[in-house]
Design a protein around this nucleic acid. Structure first.
Length: 417
DNA sequence: TCTGGGGTCCTAGGACCC
DNA sequence: TCTGGGGTCCTAGGACCC
């Protein structure tokens, strides 16, 4: 199996360059929605250097002196170009998982020369759309993602991981463990204590140690680094389960009237988004928070969840509940910097069916449990906790019985589904 | 002074039921 | 001193991603 990960280079900046070629070759950054901080950087900006995520005020001098060009974001444009890129790339694999606005996984197992195929795909996207990309190829998603990190240093923009063995170990030994997909800051702290510095060090950690400290998530990443597939391509992602609209305030909000007005805007936008994706919400959470960077800020953060009598996407009903929630949250002396609404329990608007319609079928559950136990027994595996066996969390006790290595091979292991 | 927004998955624990 | 066990449903919170 060969999985490819194609990643658009500095995607937001590249989109801006499509429409304004004069930006090419310059140090350009794109800012977050209210021009708060840097969310995309051109290679030239990275070289300055401008760090990812820095607030605009920290690079004020660079921007004012003209050494770095800062642009406000235009998400409609990025979304439109993303759809075109994804459509083009889909033709270069037998299956595609769109992972984010600027990345997708492709199954390229059918290709006799995946590197050549990806080189061709990159050239096509660059020629037709003007968007530069890089591609990594590997036997697992985690290795493909890691390969794409190396790809940016390759002349053809493509890198294929060697098959598991000494050659792969050599590659992994040169990669800092922080570059591995899924090993975030909390992992890095623990790894530092364990003396784990490279991706190879991580790949050689005992599975039991990873499982004990990081659960099934950590164990899966190590297995993937060794070339064992634990994460399948997600070809039919479930419809969204939650939908959020939130913003930081330009100025601190202190009065009930201002807080009500702000949340009303978020609630209205959430209602519009729900209708656009043709879904309804069964409940909503309104949350408000103080300035997280101000230690002296009053303790006025909180959240309130309110259920709708009937799942809805209608503005009046949503505004009504949102306003009731704000009144519960407001208190004298509060100084708020951010708020949001979170729509929960999304259902299909047409049928009012929840996303996961499986009824609880006790006999079937019992059969599946017996099958999982038998499979674990057969393979001599310790049972480990796993709630991601391609099943809803509703089936957690079931998934818990399945060992990590089989979480993507459900049908095969059980022969039932 | 100024510090993003939108997601997912997993775990733990309590209420409740049989 | 003893005081079930397994399962569902829900919430809160922590971790990660782009």
């Amino acid at each position: 199996v060969d999985i490819a990960l194609i990643d658009c280079t500095s995607f937001y900046v590249s989109c801006e360059r499509v429409f304004d070629p004069s930006l090419r070759g310059k140090a350009v950054v794109v800012l977050s929605s209210n021009d708060g901080c840097v969310v995309a950087r051109s290679a030239e900006a990275k070289a300055v250097p401008v760090a990812m995520g820095v607030p605009l005020f920290e690079i004020r001098d660079l921007v004012d002196s003209g050494r770095v060009l800062a642009l406000s974001s235009n998400y409609t444009l990025y979304g439109d170009l993303s759809a075109r890129v994804m459509t083009l790339l889909a033709g270069y694999g037998s299956a595609q998982e769109i992972y984010s606005i600027d990345e997708c996984f492709l199954n390229v197992s059918d290709s006799s020369d995946p590197v050549a195929t990806m080189a061709e795909a990159r050239a096509r996207v660059l020629h037709d759309l003007g968007i530069p990309t890089k591609a990594g190829i590997g036997p697992t998603k985690t290795l493909a993602k890691l390969a794409s990190e190396i790809a940016k240093d390759q002349a053809n923009g493509v890198f294929k991981m060697p098959p598991p063995g000494p050659a792969l170990a050599e590659v992994l030994a040169r990669l800092p463990v922080a570059e591995v997909w899924g090993f975030g800051p909390a992992y890095q702290t623990v790894f530092a204590g364990w003396g784990v510095a490279t991706a190879l060090d991580a790949a050689r950690l005992p599975l039991s140690q990873m499982r004990q400290r990081f659960g099934v998530v950590g164990e899966r990443i190590v297995r993937e680094l060794r070339g064992e597939r634990c994460l399948a391509l997600d070809l039919h992602p479930a419809p969204k389960q939650t939908l959020t609209v939130s913003r930081s305030f330009g100025e601190q909000v202190e009065t009930l009237a201002d807080l009500r007005a702000a949340v009303a805007v978020f609630a209205e936008r959430a209602a519009m988004k729900l209708r656009r994706i043709r879904r309804t919400a069964s409940a909503m959470t309104v949350w408000v928070s103080a300035n997280r960077f101000d230690p002296s800020a009053p303790d006025c953060s909180g959240s309130v969840t309110r259920a709708f009598p009937v799942p809805t996407a209608l503005t009046p009903e949503i505004l009504h509940q949102a306003d009731a929630a704000v009144r519960q949250l407001w208190r004298p002396g509060g100084r708020w910097k951010k708020a949001g609404v979170l729509m929960l329990g999304l259902t299909d608007a047409a049928t009012q069916q929840t996303t996961f319609p499986d009824p609880i079928d006790r006999p079937r559950t019992a059969r599946l449990m017996a099958a999982i136990d038998a499979a674990n027994e057969r393979h001599g595996r310790t049972m480990i906790r796993s709630a991601a066996a391609g099943l809803s969390s509703r089936w957690k006790p079931l998934a818990n019985r399945c060992s990590a290595r089989f979480t993507t091979q459900w049908d095969e292991v059980l022969g039932v589904r």
